[in-house]
Design a binder for these strands. Sequence first.
DNA 1: AAGCCGGGTGAACAAACGTGCAAGGAGGGG
DNA 2: CCCCTCCTTGCACGTTTGTTCACCCGGCTT
Lengths: 323, 323
Amino acid sequence: MSLVDESQSDRVRDALTAAHLYYMQDLTMDAIAHELHTSRSSVSRLLSHARATGLVDIQIRSPLDAPSRLELLIQERFHITAHVVPVPDHATDVDRLERVALSVARILGQFFDSNMVMGIAWGSTMNAISRHVTPKQTHGSQIIQLNGAGNMRTTGLSYASEILGRFGYAFGAHVHQFPVPAFFDSPATKQALWRERSVSRLLEMQARMDVALFGLGSPFSEVPSHVYAGGYLEEPDYASLSRSGVVGDVATIFYRADGSTDGIPLNTRGTGPDFDVLRRTPRRLCVVSGAAKLPSLRGALKAELITDLFVDESTARALVASA
Amino acid sequence: MSLVDESQSDRVRDALTAAHLYYMQDLTMDAIAHELHTSRSSVSRLLSHARATGLVDIQIRSPLDAPSRLELLIQERFHITAHVVPVPDHATDVDRLERVALSVARILGQFFDSNMVMGIAWGSTMNAISRHVTPKQTHGSQIIQLNGAGNMRTTGLSYASEILGRFGYAFGAHVHQFPVPAFFDSPATKQALWRERSVSRLLEMQARMDVALFGLGSPFSEVPSHVYAGGYLEEPDYASLSRSGVVGDVATIFYRADGSTDGIPLNTRGTGPDFDVLRRTPRRLCVVSGAAKLPSLRGALKAELITDLFVDESTARALVASA
DNA sequence: AAGCCGGGTGAACAAACGTGCAAGGAGGGG
DNA sequence: CCCCTCCTTGCACGTTTGTTCACCCGGCTT
């Protein structure tokens, strides 16, 4: 282990030197290879490594007078910070998701630091982000799962824990899983379990998280979110959602177009944090891609669930275009 | 002007988009050119522009457990933060200076922010840095010249103001020049002028600066600094310095190997800030390259003039090697 | 001890990139 | 109105960079 450690740290040291020479002194990889007594290819790999592990941190800082027109409009209209991801109009929804996720993954480190608690939902958006998130070493930080992931067929643990694990690994954070189904069959079971100390400990932690990161579910769009495709809900559930006028969910809690949640039966069985809890979280990062989620997004904005919105360009345009 | 402004801001906007697509989404320049309806070459230029103007900010962050061994040693021995710039041992002194300067220019933005006052000396080191400093927009910030620049032949204003001007431009800071000679002929003139309100206003500003940036002068090394080559001093002055046991200067104030300054005649005629003033400045960035400055560096460390040291690798090695 | 296995290396190739150059276009002055 | 100038553009070229592949070397198994 000591040998491994040593060679690891040698590698890091070399990567740092190479990064310094490349990004601070503008040497070519060739020149660096020469100074480091190795081959140019190795330097290329060293630099890739440096970027991938967050040794090199590339940020884009708009001079504050020139954020995109769209970001300004959204800020004025909804009083949130918008990060519009440029994506060509003809891109497919899969592309959109992937590109927004990549951008978020790169920028996430700016929102998370040592000794913070970050709550994370799961789903295709979070999955995509998790696969790209660039590491940033922190200490004493915690990552906590926002809602259960089990369904009738599996405990969902492996899927959710893979996602959470990648975030935890990237930030050197302690990961707290939430080993319950996404939806309980009976509200009583939920209430019972919520009184269990192991669970209430998690809920308390959720109540004092610093950052929440989530996507939006949109039950009635053509591209249903993970929750809706994964066998978590059954026919009568959908009928009930439809009757209640639901337009979306955040971490298994549903809401209407006006942002209200009162009297939606399924919410007594969902496992995500109550919106009152969520709204007390200082920074609430919401990632949305694709126009299909527009109604869900409007509802979430009405419900004031979002402080920072990450959205692809054309969806952003659609958002401000309509009243 | 409005047309110029508009096209400027268009350019910035395009540069931001391109940077986002390139650095956050890992598209190739070709792909970006396509999305922006322009040619690949223009995208290349756009990205260069984005980097050069600080829209894209590249930082290197050592995981705090692995700063170079040298930086650690220096920190332990002298209680300052060291930034060791990797430079191959066989590099010439000119190379050394240039590469250290480049590194400092890139990192300087991390030390300077809005509403700050930065004092800047001048000389070949500062000149080299000024030619590379990457912009960072700030507001309400001030840059102030630490010491006069005139000599028997010229007022020195153009040289010093060029340097100061580049810093000021890069940070959007107000520049305050110090229109006096580097050394007065007579101490009485200095004292008289020091009582002038226009000058004392500058001195007061120096007294509350947040950052000072300076190199070291080394009067008796083979590669004399600008002050010594530029006709600022005359033969009797050198003799006097030699008699006093001077090993270096910071902004025209001389010191001995033990860091003391008392009773050095020339200091009554120099125009830089008193070391007591300097030592009250929260951050004092010193840039040194080349082993020839080692004695000066040791003296400056003894005098506790430095909080952050930027130095090339082999000079750093030499510094810790000797007791 | 021989043999496999995984990770890392440099050579060679292909892709991506930067830059000198000539052409085109907008703005300003005659 | 024309011309001159300066700035920007895209092309073409040479350079720089990423990636594939065969190879080597240390560690572990049989």
